[in-house]
């Protein structure tokens, strides 16, 4: 057990394991290229709930259920819940606390909330005293649209760089007893703002933040990008990935071989009309808790760096003409072969 500092912003954790993951997504997410790799897929975006907000709470609750079931854990064994979402006052996560009744630490880094939660949870576990921590993040297309953009039935044309907030939730049970996957190190990002102002192009705004955190992680741990089987950013989307590869190239870091993006892989852009790709805290959370965790366990990857990216603006700040500050947090996840 323990946490050791490496370099400027990275912490190596020992004996922090992922015991089980739960992922639940909406119909669009469940019928895209990652079809069949989530635990549950909702038949429609509302799934019998009376409001979109309740639907978001319900999808997170189901992700909790799946994570608990697969990790053979009962709520009473969870010492702390670390989670967040996109809605004001992180209501989705907080309202779920009414029912699960476990100690709750809400976190917020917009769409980077999931890796922030994983990082905080891993360090607390590594630090000792806790035995099991639930980490979660969720988002819902309809609730995010009404908070950040326009009413659903208002006609408007999306631009090619606009992101599609995913209806999705992911939850992970971390434990200090051996599980299939181990959290090796976490890097907390700093806020990077290179002046992007367009809320319909968050990919290019977030790419420099992703670069900053990735290079910090590599520098702090003395690794190169090739030491990972894959580096997954959160929701840069098609355009953001292009921008990140180009921007990193200028800084002498070649990411083109290993880089992929959760938001980009979630939808089929041609068939599903999702433009730049998926976004939202639930995007990276569900893609990790479903497909990526599966690939790690099955052996497609052994070492994965998950770098969720967040745009830290509000509707008020962009209407006031402020640029969009961005952040990214990185978590390195490895599969440990059974030692005996």
């Amino acid at each position: 057990m323990g946490v050791a500092r490496r370099g400027k912003a990275t912490y190596e954790t020992t004996n922090v394991w992922i015991r089980g993951t739960g992922s639940v997504v909406g119909p669009n997410e469940g019928s895209g290229p990652l079809k069949g790799q989530f635990d549950r897929v909702w038949p429609d975006e509302q799934n019998g709930q009376t409001t979109w907000e309740k639907a978001e709470q319900a999808i997170l609750s189901e992700a909790y259920d799946e994570a608990l079931r697969k990790s053979e854990t009962d709520w009473s064994q969870i010492d702390l819940v670390v989670g967040g979402d996109l809605l004001d006052q992180i209501v989705t996560t907080n309202f779920n606390g009414r029912t699960h009744q476990r100690p709750l630490a809400g976190v917020f880094s917009a769409c980077a909330t999931f890796t922030e939660g994983l990082g905080v949870g891993a360090m607390l576990l590594g630090g000792g005293g806790l035995e099991r921590v639930m980490v979660s993040a969720a988002s819902h297309h309809q609730t995010a649209e009404r908070q950040f953009r326009f009413p659903l039935e208002l006609g408007y044309q999306r631009t090619p760089t606009a992101a599609w907030t995913a209806t999705a939730a992911g939850a992970v049970v971390l434990a200090n007893e051996r599980g299939p996957l181990r959290i090796e190190a976490v890097t907390f990002g700093r806020v990077v703002d290179l002046g992007g102002k367009d809320p319909n192009d968050m990919g290019s705004a977030m790419a420099p933040a992703a670069y900053d955190t990735i290079q910090q992680h590599l520098a702090d741990t003395g690794q190169s990008a090739g030491d990972f089987d894959a580096i997954f950013t959160g929701d840069l989307g098609h355009f953001g990935v292009e921008m990140l590869i180009r921007y990193a190239q200028e800084k002498q870091l070649d990411l083109s071989e290993v880089l992929d993006d959760c938001g980009r892989s979630l939808y089929d852009a041609d068939q599903q009309d999702t433009h730049n790709g998926g976004s939202g805290p639930g995007c990276s959370a569900s893609v990790f808790a479903g497909p990526l965790a599966r690939r790690l366990v099955q052996g497609d990857y052994r070492r994965l760096l998950l770098v969720a990216t967040g745009a830290l603006f509000s509707p008020t700040t962009y209407q006031q003409g402020e640029s969009i500050p961005c952040i990214a947090h990185a978590v390195a996840v490895v599969r440990e072969e059974a030692s005996r």
Partner: peptide, 28 residues
């Protein structure tokens, strides 16, 4: 919203688009 997705301002500028702009937030 599907008409405007394809037609853009062709759906927004006519007075039917004005109706859409009033009805959609009220529904929402």
């Amino acid at each position: 919203d599907r008409i405007v997705k394809h037609g853009g301002m062709g759906g927004t500028l006519p007075i039917t688009g004005f109706a859409n702009a009033m009805v959609s937030p009220a529904m929402e």
